[in-house]
Amino acid sequence: MNNTTEFVLRHRQFYVPWTDDEEDMLETGQKFALALSTEVQLPLVVAATTLTNIPAELSRLEHITERSSTAQRRSRVVLALYPSWKLLLKATPSSTDSYFVGVEWADESLRGWSTFAGALDLSTWTTMVDPLSRDVRDIYDRIVWNGNNSWMDAHGKSAALRDLRRLEEIGQLDRDLLLGYVLHRKRSAAALQLETLIDKVQPRPARSWL
C-alpha cells in the first residue's frame, strides 16, 4: 500500500462539493467510489432519492432510495448521489468498516455533515476539520439539548431562537455547519424544524431563476 492509498483509507467518509460542472462532479464521485470498492474489496451500493437519479452505468448495482426499508448493516461502499437529508441518514453505513462517498447537490449542502464526519474533500484532497471554538460548540450543544422535542415546544423554540440570535450577533451563525452538527445527533425531521427557526434569524435570500 503506497502513502497516498494509506492516507485515503484513514477516512471512512468522502465529500464531493457542488460545482457548476455537474458532469465532472458525478465523474469524480463515481470513479472514486468504484476504485475504492475495488481497493477495499467491498460491494458498491448506490444511494439516490429515486431510481431515476441513478446513472445507467450504475443501474445494475444494489441501490438505496428514500423508499427503501432500513438500510443493511453489512460492510460496503456507499455512493450517495445528491442525497436529501432523509436519504443521507438512511444511506450512511452503520458498520465501522464501511465507506461513504457523498456527491453534493446545490440545494442540499453536505458541507456541515462532512465537516463533523472528518470527511476527505475530494476536490482538495484534504481532511475536513471541525472549526468550532469551545464557546460556539457550547451554544451548538445547548441548541441540540433544547431540541429534545424537535424544537416544537414553546421552551425549545424560544431557547433555540435566543441561541441562534447570539450566534448571529457574534458572526457565527453558519447554517450549513449547524445543521450538519445536528444531523449527526438528530433525525432529519428535527433538522428541518431547526431550519425553520434559523430562517427567522437569518432569512435566506430570494432565489433568482434568471
Rank of each mutant, 00 (worst) to 15 (best):
K90S: 12
K90R: 14
A91I: 06
A91H: 10
T92Y: 11
P93Q: 02
P93C: 01
P93D: 04
P93L: 01
S94A: 08
S94H: 04
S94K: 09
S95Q: 11
S95A: 15
T96D: 11
T96C: 08
T96Y: 03
D97R: 13
D97M: 09
S98D: 05
Y99H: 03
F100I: 02
F100D: 05
V101P: 04
G102A: 15
G102K: 13
V103G: 13
V103Q: 11
W105S: 15
W105R: 14
W105Q: 15
A106E: 15
D107V: 11
D107P: 13
E108F: 14
E108A: 14
S109E: 09
L110T: 12
L110W: 09
R111E: 08
G112S: 07
G112I: 02
G112D: 06
G112Y: 10
G112W: 05
S114R: 06
S114P: 08
T115K: 04
T115I: 03
F116E: 03
F116H: 09
A117R: 13
A117K: 13
A117T: 07
G118M: 01
G118V: 01
G118C: 01
G118P: 11
A119N: 05
A119W: 00
L120E: 00
L122W: 09
L122T: 08
L122C: 12
S123C: 07
S123F: 05
T124N: 04
T124P: 00
W125T: 00
W125H: 06
W125I: 04
T126F: 00
T126N: 01
T126L: 01
T126P: 00
T126S: 04
T126H: 01
